[in-house]
Amino acid sequence: MTPEIVPNFGSENTDRKLAIICSKGNLDMAYPGLILANAALGEGVETLIFFTFWGFDMITKSRMNDLQFSPAGNTAMHLPGSDMHIPQAMMPAPGMTAVATRMLKKSIADLDVPEVPDFLDQIVAAGGHLWACRMSADMNKLTMNELRDDVEGIISASDFIEMTDGAQLLFI
């Protein structure tokens, strides 16, 4: 008689909760929050994302397909697959942002990771909740009409803090 070994997939009713605040709209800074949100949902963790400041672009219909990545000011940036850096002085050259954005999009697609709007579709399908920041909406003069349809509402920072009572929190 051998003992049974059954994986522990945790209790069905875990109360673990994760709040992620996405405040950046650069392509490279959009992904960490999405990847962590998606991973948390896949582990059965209730996940809420609050989009604020430049992170608002991730849920704004007219901008969400056009997030960009600039190597300017990013001293960690090196050529893909190599340790070589391009001198910072060359980074502001015309077309550099477009080239870098294209390269980054390709490396992400090569890993089978979706583009930002598709990724948010998947996060919502997995049960994630998207919330928009009131102050960012007012600053950008945007209403629910200009945001993804699955954004649940435009709320104040204090509303978000209240609804994430007891949650673990990530600010990106």
């Binding site: 875990t14 896949g42 582990e43 089978d112 979706p114 998947q122 399908a125 997995a126």
Partner: peptide, 22 residues
Amino acid sequence: SRRVQTVGGVPVKDQFALFPKK
């Protein structure tokens, strides 16, 4: 999960309904 959706043709939402939580 992503590949089960894009290649296997079963949406992520259905995967969560069939195999809850994880």
